[in-house]
Design a protein around this nucleic acid. Structure first.
Ligand SMILES: [Mn+2]
Ligand SMILES: [Mn+2]
Ligand SMILES: [Zn+2]
Ligand SMILES: [Zn+2]
Lengths: 146, 146
DNA sequence: AGGTTTTTGAGAATGATTCGCAAGTGCATA
DNA sequence: TATGCACTTGCGAATCATTCTCAAAAACCT
């Protein structure tokens, strides 16, 4: 957590922005665990555990965290953007169950190489990968025998 | 185009739905060319070329086209869902330029194999792939020399 | 044509996200 | 430590994509 705070502090300083209490509260809430999160999650979690922060401030802070590289947009589910840590996390891809909504992560290494080659061929400079597939998870396959 | 209409007609019949004039207008507008499209595009295109169809009807028709397998959700850009043909189109991945918004498609074959294997390992049954990467396209790399 | 069901269009409603602004904070400086 | 000023915040209003409601229109069946 200290490392993330340090990165955040330096990022903010480089933009002439201040590491205020709400901004720190949000950062800590995000890095308290390793789960994917969305604005509502985060808002509820903060409201439960610590000083309140308005939704507006959360919405204003997320772009800063994105730009700093600490988090990234992971995927979109139920009309909501879902984020995850990017600092300290390998790239990975997501298997999203359309029946129960569960998200399973899978290895990225081999896929990344291939896609990088495709990008080279296309003369495209990748900054962010978004790889996912929708379908049925193990449990839901059993229960719906498909 | 005839083939798509046929598929659409049979799909609708199987659901006890009618192939009405607005539904046909929408289908034809979509398959008139091979571009990615969103609701606004489509609405404007229909408004220009043929009889009017309300936005509400477009929004109601898209889920039918998705379910019939004729189109698929391609990606999300500028807070809008973007669709594309899936009937008659190979799976492919998208390189999206964060600078100019252009979308370049790339081959999917090798990537697909790898991801299928990962899905087998995870006991996950894939029904739809969503593979994209954001970054800088060829042109934008030149002009911003990055 | 008449009766029944489905579909449509228009606008209201919704839900996520963004904005505007007055009040509050953080920080530098005296 | 008090003062000044720029940056932030919280609140509610605004926006924007999408969905819903409902009365009128179209399609289908006889
Ligand atoms: Mn993840
Ligand atoms: Mn495409
Ligand atoms: Zn599931
Ligand atoms: Zn570009």
């Amino acid at each position: 957590m200290e490392k993330e705070i340090q990165i955040y502090r330096e990022f903010l300083k480089s933009k002439n922005l201040k590491l205020t209490k709400p901004r720190l509260t949000i950062l800590k809430a995000i890095f308290r665990n390793h789960e994917h999160f969305n604005v509502d999650n985060l808002y509820e979690q903060i409201r439960k555990k610590q000083s309140n922060v308005s939704r507006a401030t959360i919405y204003r802070t997320i772009p800063l965290l994105l730009e700093s590289g600490l988090i990234k947009l992971s995927l979109r589910c139920d009309s909501k953007d879902i984020y995850e840590h990017s600092y300290g996390h390998e790239n990975h891809l997501h298997f999203i169950c359309t029946n129960c909504g569960s998200i399973k992560e899978a290895s990225f290494i081999k896929v990344e190489k291939l896609i990088n080659q495709l990008a080279v061929d296309a003369n495209f400079k990748i900054t962010e990968y978004h790889l996912s597939a929708r379908g049925l998870c193990e449990n839901c396959r059993k229960s719906t025998d498909q």
